[in-house]
Amino acid sequence: MKPPPFDYHRPAGLGEALRSLAEAGAHGKVLAGGQSLIPLLNMRLAAPGHLVDINGLTELGTIAADASGVRVGALARHAVVERSGSARAAQPLLAQALRLVAHPVIRNRGTVVGSLVHADPSAEMPAVLALLGGSVRLASLGGERDVAAADFFVGPLESACLPGELAVSAFFPALPERSGTAFCEVARRHGDYAVAGVAAAVTLDEDFRISAARVVCVSVGPVPVVVDVTGVCGRRPPASVDWDAVARAVQDRIEPEGDIHATADYRRHLTGVLVTKALRGAAHEAAEGGEGPA
């Protein structure tokens, strides 16, 4: 379990990093937190010719939050985002999801943006970005572009980040007033990738009826599966929603596969259970935030 040979670059600034990545082209790989990449290298499942270590680019470690949402820099560690009061205030789902990401020692090193680029369909952060309709900012020598979450996750472990590009930040939009979120998952062991997991965002109207409801499901498709369930919920108060029907609507949209940890049937069943739990939790939070009836 030792990596194959590679050239190691540790740029001191963003420009140098982008030049290194441009020169490396398809043979380049960015090292941020390394929580997925290093095992892949050691198992020789990845063999990039050039490793561009961005850990010296401290300017990418920022977290900027305002009323519109949270922008997370490429070097912001999971643990830092998890503990950021301003991030939590602007978008509580970040902290709700991050506590489910692996273990504290992994969160101390791993980065939010790194997790997005890694694009594991079982991971929490891609699901959060997809649910919120956020975006990833990609920089290259040619300039910057923002890619919407819907376009960013292309397939399992495949994102829209091209050779020569560096994901410099991601933006997680805030939700309107009277919104709530929740992230529920079942993992085999504490901190494992979820067997199934669902994040939900619910917005209530002034009469505390559901005006918008979306869920995202992990581990049940090649990319995070976002389902808008506003219609199925009807414009009803949460207490009178037919949650079973909502769960079935989501179950119809997912394509779980069986593996050594769970059958496809179980994943589908579990997703249904978690859809209900997450939506009710989100609706409850929305009502609490709006000081309305739970």
């Binding site: 085999r188 940890h261 579990l270």
Partner: peptide, 11 residues
């Protein structure tokens, strides 16, 4: 026995 196994047994 895993949760998935138990679910299958129940079914």
């Amino acid at each position: 026995i895993s949760p998935s196994d138990l679910y299958s047994l129940r079914t």
